[in-house]
Amino acid sequence: MRIHVYERLWLVASMILIVAFIATVTYGTVGLGITMVDDREETLSPGDIDEDERFEDPRIEQVGENEFEAYVVAMTFLFQPDPIEVPANSEVTFYVTSRDVIHSFTVVGTNTNTMVIPGEVSVMTVEFDEPGEYGIICNEYCGVGHHDMEAELIVVEEDEFDLTELSVDAPDTVEPDAEIELTATVSNGLIDDLEATVTVEIGDETFQEDVTVGGDESEDVSITVDADDLGEGDHDWTVTVDDYEETGTVSVASDTDENDDGSENGEDTTDENDASSTVEDRLS
Protein backbone atom coordinates (compact mmCIF):
# COMPACT_ATOMS: atom_id res chain seq x y z
CA MET A 1 0.00 0.00 0.00
CA ARG A 2 1.35 3.38 -0.93
CA ILE A 3 0.71 6.16 1.54
CA HIS A 4 1.30 9.74 0.51
CA VAL A 5 4.07 11.51 2.40
CA TYR A 6 1.66 14.17 3.78
CA GLU A 7 -0.70 11.49 4.96
CA ARG A 8 2.13 9.79 6.78
CA LEU A 9 3.04 13.11 8.32
CA TRP A 10 -0.34 13.79 9.87
CA LEU A 11 -0.79 10.19 10.97
CA VAL A 12 2.43 10.52 12.95
CA ALA A 13 1.46 13.97 14.24
CA SER A 14 -1.92 12.76 15.52
CA MET A 15 -0.20 9.88 17.32
CA ILE A 16 2.18 12.36 18.96
CA LEU A 17 -0.84 14.43 20.04
CA ILE A 18 -2.49 11.45 21.75
CA VAL A 19 0.77 10.50 23.48
CA ALA A 20 1.20 14.13 24.61
CA PHE A 21 -2.32 14.18 26.11
CA ILE A 22 -1.66 11.00 28.08
CA ALA A 23 1.82 12.23 29.10
CA THR A 24 0.50 15.50 30.57
CA VAL A 25 -2.20 13.72 32.58
CA THR A 26 0.39 11.22 33.82
CA TYR A 27 2.71 14.09 34.74
CA GLY A 28 -0.14 15.73 36.69
CA THR A 29 -0.76 12.56 38.66
CA VAL A 30 2.82 11.39 39.22
CA GLY A 31 4.74 14.67 39.10
CA LEU A 32 2.28 17.12 40.66
CA GLY A 33 0.45 14.58 42.82
CA ILE A 34 -3.04 15.55 41.65
CA THR A 35 -5.58 12.95 42.67
CA MET A 36 -9.08 12.07 41.66
CA VAL A 37 -11.78 11.49 44.24
CA ASP A 38 -12.58 7.80 44.44
CA ASP A 39 -14.57 5.39 46.58
CA ARG A 40 -11.73 4.23 48.82
CA GLU A 41 -13.59 5.44 51.90
CA GLU A 42 -15.99 3.05 53.66
CA THR A 43 -19.61 3.47 52.71
CA LEU A 44 -21.91 5.24 55.17
CA SER A 45 -25.66 4.90 54.99
CA PRO A 46 -27.42 8.31 55.17
CA GLY A 47 -29.45 6.96 58.10
CA ASP A 48 -26.25 6.42 60.07
CA ILE A 49 -24.85 9.94 59.63
CA ASP A 50 -26.14 11.04 63.04
CA GLU A 51 -24.41 8.09 64.71
CA ASP A 52 -21.13 8.55 62.89
CA GLU A 53 -18.62 10.32 65.09
CA ARG A 54 -17.27 12.29 62.13
CA PHE A 55 -20.59 13.59 60.87
CA GLU A 56 -22.86 13.73 63.90
CA ASP A 57 -21.38 17.16 64.54
CA PRO A 58 -20.15 18.62 61.22
CA ARG A 59 -17.01 20.57 62.11
CA ILE A 60 -13.35 21.35 61.60
CA GLU A 61 -10.86 19.38 63.64
CA GLN A 62 -7.14 19.78 64.05
CA VAL A 63 -5.34 16.49 63.56
CA GLY A 64 -1.73 17.59 63.18
CA GLU A 65 0.62 20.57 63.30
CA ASN A 66 -0.85 22.18 60.20
CA GLU A 67 -3.33 19.46 59.39
CA PHE A 68 -7.05 19.80 59.69
CA GLU A 69 -10.03 17.65 58.88
CA ALA A 70 -13.37 19.07 57.82
CA TYR A 71 -16.45 16.89 58.18
CA VAL A 72 -19.11 18.26 55.88
CA VAL A 73 -22.69 17.07 55.43
CA ALA A 74 -24.56 18.14 52.32
CA MET A 75 -28.33 18.07 52.20
CA THR A 76 -31.16 19.81 50.38
CA PHE A 77 -30.30 22.69 50.24
CA LEU A 78 -27.36 23.49 52.47
CA PHE A 79 -23.94 22.45 53.64
CA GLN A 80 -22.97 21.96 57.27
CA PRO A 81 -20.93 23.59 58.69
CA ASP A 82 -21.40 26.97 57.05
CA PRO A 83 -19.14 28.89 56.92
CA ILE A 84 -16.23 26.49 56.92
CA GLU A 85 -13.25 28.24 58.48
CA VAL A 86 -9.73 26.96 58.03
CA PRO A 87 -6.38 28.61 58.62
CA ALA A 88 -3.99 29.62 55.86
CA ASN A 89 -0.86 27.57 55.31
CA SER A 90 -2.62 24.36 56.23
CA GLU A 91 -3.51 21.01 54.80
CA VAL A 92 -7.22 20.32 54.98
CA THR A 93 -8.87 16.98 54.31
CA PHE A 94 -12.54 17.28 53.48
CA TYR A 95 -14.83 14.38 54.23
CA VAL A 96 -18.13 15.02 52.53
CA THR A 97 -21.28 12.93 52.56
CA SER A 98 -24.90 13.48 51.65
CA ARG A 99 -27.98 13.04 53.78
CA ASP A 100 -30.44 12.69 50.92
CA VAL A 101 -29.77 12.98 47.19
CA ILE A 102 -26.71 13.44 44.98
CA HIS A 103 -25.05 16.81 45.52
CA SER A 104 -21.65 18.19 44.78
CA PHE A 105 -19.09 20.02 46.84
CA THR A 106 -17.52 22.57 44.55
CA VAL A 107 -15.13 25.21 45.77
CA VAL A 108 -15.75 27.78 43.06
CA GLY A 109 -12.79 28.65 40.86
CA THR A 110 -10.63 25.77 42.09
CA ASN A 111 -10.18 22.10 41.34
CA THR A 112 -11.56 21.18 44.74
CA ASN A 113 -14.69 19.61 43.43
CA THR A 114 -16.42 16.32 44.02
CA MET A 115 -19.75 14.62 43.69
CA VAL A 116 -21.40 13.94 47.02
CA ILE A 117 -23.27 10.68 46.81
CA PRO A 118 -25.57 9.41 49.58
CA GLY A 119 -23.92 6.35 51.09
CA GLU A 120 -20.43 7.39 50.00
CA VAL A 121 -17.87 9.58 51.71
CA SER A 122 -15.85 11.73 49.32
CA VAL A 123 -12.37 12.57 50.58
CA MET A 124 -10.13 15.32 49.26
CA THR A 125 -6.95 16.75 50.73
CA VAL A 126 -6.04 20.25 49.67
CA GLU A 127 -3.52 22.86 50.73
CA PHE A 128 -4.50 26.41 51.50
CA ASP A 129 -1.52 28.74 51.28
CA GLU A 130 -3.12 32.16 51.30
CA PRO A 131 -6.02 33.64 53.26
CA GLY A 132 -9.11 34.20 51.18
CA GLU A 133 -12.78 33.56 50.75
CA TYR A 134 -14.28 30.98 48.49
CA GLY A 135 -17.83 30.09 47.63
CA ILE A 136 -19.01 26.52 47.83
CA ILE A 137 -21.84 25.46 45.56
CA CYS A 138 -23.69 22.33 44.55
CA ASN A 139 -23.36 21.60 40.86
CA GLU A 140 -25.55 18.50 40.70
CA TYR A 141 -29.20 19.39 40.23
CA CYS A 142 -30.72 18.30 43.54
CA GLY A 143 -34.18 19.84 43.65
CA VAL A 144 -36.13 23.09 43.58
CA GLY A 145 -33.72 24.86 45.93
CA HIS A 146 -30.59 23.75 44.06
CA HIS A 147 -29.72 27.26 42.93
CA ASP A 148 -29.69 28.41 46.57
CA MET A 149 -27.45 25.62 47.81
CA GLU A 150 -24.25 27.32 48.78
CA ALA A 151 -21.84 27.81 51.63
CA GLU A 152 -18.73 29.80 52.36
CA LEU A 153 -15.18 28.66 52.83
CA ILE A 154 -13.05 31.19 54.67
CA VAL A 155 -9.31 30.80 54.85
CA VAL A 156 -8.22 33.03 57.72
CA GLU A 157 -4.76 34.21 58.71
CA GLU A 158 -2.87 31.46 60.49
CA ASP A 159 -2.51 33.40 63.75
CA GLU A 160 -6.14 34.53 63.73
CA PHE A 161 -7.51 31.02 63.55
CA ASP A 162 -8.96 29.35 66.60
CA LEU A 163 -11.35 26.57 67.45
CA THR A 164 -12.52 28.20 70.65
CA GLU A 165 -16.00 27.69 71.95
CA LEU A 166 -17.60 29.60 74.76
CA SER A 167 -20.65 28.55 76.68
CA VAL A 168 -22.04 30.15 79.80
CA ASP A 169 -24.13 28.62 82.50
CA ALA A 170 -25.97 31.18 84.59
CA PRO A 171 -29.23 31.22 86.51
CA ASP A 172 -32.25 33.11 85.22
CA THR A 173 -33.56 34.19 88.58
CA VAL A 174 -32.11 34.24 92.06
CA GLU A 175 -33.37 35.20 95.47
CA PRO A 176 -32.02 38.51 96.86
CA ASP A 177 -30.19 36.71 99.66
CA ALA A 178 -28.66 34.09 97.37
CA GLU A 179 -25.53 34.07 95.31
CA ILE A 180 -25.31 34.27 91.56
CA GLU A 181 -22.94 31.68 90.24
CA LEU A 182 -21.92 32.13 86.67
CA THR A 183 -19.79 29.51 84.95
CA ALA A 184 -18.08 30.15 81.64
CA THR A 185 -16.75 27.11 79.82
CA VAL A 186 -13.99 27.81 77.33
CA SER A 187 -13.04 24.91 75.11
CA ASN A 188 -10.06 24.83 72.82
CA GLY A 189 -10.22 22.60 69.74
CA LEU A 190 -6.63 23.29 68.69
CA ILE A 191 -3.64 21.17 69.59
CA ASP A 192 -1.71 24.12 71.03
CA ASP A 193 -2.64 25.71 74.33
CA LEU A 194 -5.00 28.65 74.28
CA GLU A 195 -4.20 31.58 76.50
CA ALA A 196 -7.14 33.85 76.92
CA THR A 197 -8.68 36.31 79.30
CA VAL A 198 -12.21 35.66 80.42
CA THR A 199 -14.00 38.90 81.17
CA VAL A 200 -17.30 38.77 82.99
CA GLU A 201 -19.39 41.86 83.38
CA ILE A 202 -22.44 41.67 85.56
CA GLY A 203 -24.30 44.75 86.67
CA ASP A 204 -21.56 47.30 87.35
CA GLU A 205 -18.99 44.72 88.31
CA THR A 206 -16.26 43.38 86.10
CA PHE A 207 -14.22 40.28 86.73
CA GLN A 208 -11.20 39.20 84.76
CA GLU A 209 -9.39 35.92 84.83
CA ASP A 210 -6.58 34.61 82.68
CA VAL A 211 -6.95 31.01 81.65
CA THR A 212 -4.76 28.58 79.80
CA VAL A 213 -6.78 25.94 78.04
CA GLY A 214 -4.83 22.91 76.95
CA GLY A 215 -5.14 21.39 73.49
CA ASP A 216 -8.50 19.73 72.93
CA GLU A 217 -9.58 20.55 76.47
CA SER A 218 -11.94 22.92 78.18
CA GLU A 219 -11.71 25.04 81.28
CA ASP A 220 -14.45 26.34 83.55
CA VAL A 221 -14.28 29.82 85.01
CA SER A 222 -16.75 30.47 87.79
CA ILE A 223 -17.53 33.74 89.43
CA THR A 224 -19.88 34.26 92.30
CA VAL A 225 -21.70 37.48 93.07
CA ASP A 226 -23.96 38.19 95.98
CA ALA A 227 -27.39 39.05 94.67
CA ASP A 228 -27.61 41.63 97.42
CA ASP A 229 -24.76 43.59 95.91
CA LEU A 230 -26.64 43.92 92.65
CA GLY A 231 -30.00 44.72 94.19
CA GLU A 232 -33.39 43.66 92.99
CA GLY A 233 -34.21 43.86 89.31
CA ASP A 234 -32.81 42.58 86.04
CA HIS A 235 -29.08 42.59 85.51
CA ASP A 236 -27.38 41.98 82.19
CA TRP A 237 -24.24 39.93 82.08
CA THR A 238 -21.65 39.63 79.37
CA VAL A 239 -18.89 37.08 79.12
CA THR A 240 -16.10 37.81 76.66
CA VAL A 241 -13.25 35.56 75.60
CA ASP A 242 -11.17 36.89 72.71
CA ASP A 243 -13.74 37.55 69.98
CA TYR A 244 -16.45 35.44 71.54
CA GLU A 245 -19.20 36.97 73.57
CA GLU A 246 -22.19 35.61 75.40
CA THR A 247 -24.85 37.73 77.04
CA GLY A 248 -27.82 37.11 79.23
CA THR A 249 -29.93 38.52 82.00
CA VAL A 250 -30.33 37.46 85.58
CA SER A 251 -33.26 38.64 87.66
CA VAL A 252 -32.90 39.21 91.35
CA ALA A 253 -36.36 38.92 92.83
CA SER A 254 -37.89 37.53 95.97
CA ASP A 255 -39.91 34.58 94.89
CA THR A 256 -43.43 35.28 96.06
CA ASP A 257 -45.09 32.90 93.64
CA GLU A 258 -47.02 30.13 95.30
CA ASN A 259 -45.24 27.44 93.29
CA ASP A 260 -41.95 28.56 94.68
CA ASP A 261 -40.02 25.44 93.90
CA GLY A 262 -41.78 24.76 90.63
CA SER A 263 -42.48 21.18 91.57
CA GLU A 264 -46.20 21.72 92.00
CA ASN A 265 -46.68 21.67 88.26
CA GLY A 266 -44.98 18.35 88.11
CA GLU A 267 -42.47 20.02 85.86
CA ASP A 268 -38.79 20.21 86.12
CA THR A 269 -38.20 23.91 86.09
CA THR A 270 -34.86 24.52 84.62
CA ASP A 271 -34.03 28.08 85.46
CA GLU A 272 -30.72 27.69 83.82
CA ASN A 273 -29.82 29.77 80.87
CA ASP A 274 -27.54 27.87 78.59
CA ALA A 275 -25.98 30.04 76.01
CA SER A 276 -23.57 28.52 73.59
CA SER A 277 -22.01 29.81 70.44
CA THR A 278 -21.63 26.55 68.63
CA VAL A 279 -22.28 26.01 64.99
CA GLU A 280 -25.53 24.14 65.59
CA ASP A 281 -26.96 27.04 67.46
CA ARG A 282 -26.17 29.40 64.71
CA LEU A 283 -27.86 27.08 62.25
CA SER A 284 -31.03 26.44 64.10
Binding site: G28, V107, N111, T125, E127
Partner: peptide
Protein backbone atom coordinates in the same frame (compact mmCIF):
# COMPACT_ATOMS: atom_id res chain seq x y z
CA UNK B 1 -4.42 21.69 31.33
CA UNK B 2 -1.58 23.87 32.62
CA UNK B 3 -3.33 27.19 33.05
CA UNK B 4 -6.99 26.43 33.65
CA UNK B 5 -6.62 23.13 35.49
CA UNK B 6 -3.24 23.04 37.24
CA UNK B 7 -3.28 26.81 37.82
CA UNK B 8 -6.56 26.79 39.75
CA UNK B 9 -5.34 26.05 43.25
CA UNK B 10 -6.14 24.48 45.57
CA UNK B 11 -6.13 21.10 43.88
CA UNK B 12 -6.75 17.84 45.72
CA UNK B 13 -3.48 15.95 45.98
CA UNK B 14 -2.35 12.50 46.97
CA UNK B 15 -1.57 12.12 50.63
Amino acid sequence: YFVEFVGNDPTPFVV
